[in-house]
């Protein structure tokens, strides 16, 4: 009978699938008696691979389990799902870099109510998180502005490229950059709308273009900017993949070196370009320490030690400026960290 045997085939398929899945994952955190912490990123990127290395290193050191989760698109929904899963696993603490903190307050607060919750990389202002570990994105943005001033001491027209606006780190970096270039006072609550040309005494910010995390779109945006403003002086990429995309576009247009590139983060291409001189410099965070400090902090809190929490609720891991002078050292440092990833894995 065809029906009966096909039922059997389907049953076998499912059985095989189930067994395969069971072999792949584990579902309960406390199975081995160790404490377990969730480390949730805001997407998938090389940056987070370094952070993962830090988190795992801390886990190793403190003898706790660390579940690193990198949500794919749509990141906000995926983060919610990830948190729910971690809570279901009864983890002893979660560190998260929220994608859209304003809309995620419910999820974050619910998690905070059920386990120890801290934020890293990007904060969730107004939530019940215990502490925020990261850099001040506004200050980092101003740092980036300083690099632009170094690269273009006589002023000029620049354009900003970023994956997406509306998330805290992007908005604050951009604002810090603009405020520094326009020589405004320190005020991270200011907001200039994108799409408006901003003219200062020396510097003009032509526009801010977004690409929705698509590298092809990032390159295409850079090319279109070169087409629209053939005399542009500087291009600033605020997310890790933006500077490489800008450099590709410049290389194809034969304008490498003519237009100043100021970067964020430590993509290999970016670092190489700094060494070659086609990129003036980059502002780097310290993702390794985000991961490391997050797990360390969570482990201490889970043991009942609340004294580790700074009074301000903010543990600053400051950003650094990397230019031609410091790039070689920085690279060596980075390579040793990534090599550590392989070991820890």
């Amino acid at each position: 009978m065809p029906t009966r045997s096909s039922t059997r085939v389907v049953a076998l398929l499912f059985l095989g699938l189930g067994a395969g899945l069971a072999a792949c994952g584990k579902s309960d955190a406390s199975a081995d008696g160790k404490k377990t912490f969730g480390y949730v990123t805001n997407g998938i990127a090389s940056f987070w691979v370094i952070a993962k290395a830090g988190a795992l290193a801390a886990g190793e050191e403190l003898d706790v389990d660390v579940e690193v989760r990198m949500p794919g698109p749509p990141e906000d929904a995926e983060q919610k799902r990830t948190i729910e899963e971690l809570l279901a696993m009864n983890v002893d603490g979660i560190a998260i870099s929220p994608v859209k903190p304003d809309n995620q307050l419910d999820v974050i607060n619910e998690a905070a109510a059920r386990t120890h919750l801290i934020t890293h990389d990007s904060d969730a202002p107004g939530s019940d998180r215990l502490v925020y570990i990261g850099m001040d994105n506004y200050l980092a943005g101003r740092m980036c502005g300083e690099l632009v001033k170094e690269a273009l001491p006589d002023g000029g027209e620049i354009m900003i490229f970023v994956g997406r606006l509306g998330q805290d780190n992007a908005d604050l970096r951009r604002q810090g950059l603009i405020d520094e270039l326009l020589d405004r006072s320190m005020d991270s609550t200011r907001h200039d709308k994108p799409g408006e040309e901003l003219k200062g005494d020396k510097y003009t910010i032509l526009d801010t273009r977004t690409d929705n995390f698509d590298s092809a779109a990032a390159k295409s945006q850079a090319e279109d900017a070169l087409a629209k403003y053939p005399d542009i002086d500087g291009m600033v990429g605020l997310f890790a993949y933006n500077p490489p995309a800008i450099l590709e576009a410049l290389a194809a247009a034969g304008k490498k070196g003519e237009v100043q590139v100021i970067a964020f983060d430590e993509d290999t291409v970016t670092l190489q370009a700094i060494e070659d001189g086609s990129c003036h410099g980059t502002v780097v965070q310290n993702p390794y320490r985000y991961g490391y400090e997050s797990v360390k902090m969570l482990a201490a809190i889970a043991e009942g030690d609340k004294s580790v929490i700074p009074a301000s609720g903010f543990l600053d891991i400051p950003a650094r400026k990397i230019t031609k002078d410091s790039v070689v050292d920085f690279r060596t440092e980075l390579e040793s960290l990534i090599a550590g990833t392989a070991e820890v894995k």
Binding site: I44, G72, P73, S215, P244, A245, E248
Partner: peptide
């Protein structure tokens, strides 16, 4: 060709849509 052109291929996003 896309990979050769863009030279930065993010496994999670390259080619989406």
């Amino acid at each position: 060709l896309f990979a050769l052109d863009i030279n930065s291929i993010q496994p999670s996003g390259h080619g989406n849509f």
